[in-house]
């Protein structure tokens, strides 16, 4: 059987692609969070970091296109698999009964769609800069006198809006919830799981998701001045 054909057409192949693209994206959002946490350092840090990323040139585009391809495959398969799964039971039961499927596992498509909407908004805000283009005109002078985009100020200004902060919390919250099923599910799909590992994997996944959510959540909460120590680190 054709390898690519089997990956894109067989049920297990599609699940594998779902797992692998998911893993890449988990890696990305984790790195992204670590980068974002530089907001608690002096503005020069995150602005230098942002400038470094923007100066990658072709490399940046290669990474962007690779991530975009992962999102596209993950998304396309999500809709395709869901459509197939619905078609596999044209007539449902009179009594809907759930034995042990978790809520997170049953709302994967819905949590994913909210995350997607957030992603589109976020890219529009920081990458394409079509929302609030005036915010991206702020520049910052580095120690060597180079003028770079003031990502720090864009972030603080963004979270000054209660609406953006709420949407952000909803987006990262649902992403963490999505990953709570996704991470363990990924191990099962890749065949890297059995009964002996299950409890440990579930706990590690829950811990990761909580850390991911809290790590993201402290940013808007600090910018809005709601956290005792961390809020003091933000320069307005």
């Amino acid at each position: 059987m054709n390898l690519l054909g089997a990956l894109f057409q067989s049920s297990i192949g599609k699940k594998l692609l779902m797992a692998v693209t998911g893993l890449v994206l988990v890696g990305f959002v984790t790195g992204h969070l670590v980068g974002n946490l530089q907001i608690f350092l002096p503005p020069a840090k995150i602005n230098t970091y942002g400038h470094m990323l923007e100066s990658l040139g072709a490399g940046l585009w290669a990474i962007r296109l690779f991530l975009l391809a992962c999102v596209a495959i993950h998304l396309w398969l999500a809709f395709k698999l869901t459509a197939e799964n619905r078609a596999a039971r044209p007539q449902g039961y009179g009594v809907e009964h759930t034995n042990r499927a978790t809520l997170a596992s049953r709302v994967m498509l819905r949590s994913g769609i909210v995350v997607l909407v957030f992603l589109v908004y976020h890219l529009g805000h920081f990458t394409l800069r079509v929302q609030h283009p005036e915010w991206s005109e702020h520049t910052f002078r580095l120690a060597d006198n180079t003028m770079v985009r003031d990502v720090y100020r864009m972030t603080v200004q963004g979270f000054n809006s209660a609406g953006i902060s709420c949407f952000y919390l909803l987006g990262v919250g649902l992403l963490a919830y999505h990953l709570n099923h996704g991470l363990v599910s990924m191990c099962q799909t890749l065949g890297l799981k059995n009964e002996r590992w299950t409890t440990g994997l579930e706990r590690a996944s829950a811990a990761f998701c909580w850390l991911y959510f809290l790590g993201n959540a402290v940013i808007p909460l600090s910018v809005r001045g709601w956290l005792p120590v961390l809020s003091g680190l933000i320069q307005r």
Partner: peptide, 22 residues
């Protein structure tokens, strides 16, 4: 066997383990 399973029109696994519960 996986190919025959797919051809028969079954759905895909979402790792919810309702199967082994029953």
């Amino acid at each position: 066997m996986v190919q025959a399973m797919d051809e028969a029109g079954f759905g895909n696994c979402t790792n919810q383990y309702e199967c082994s519960a029953v």
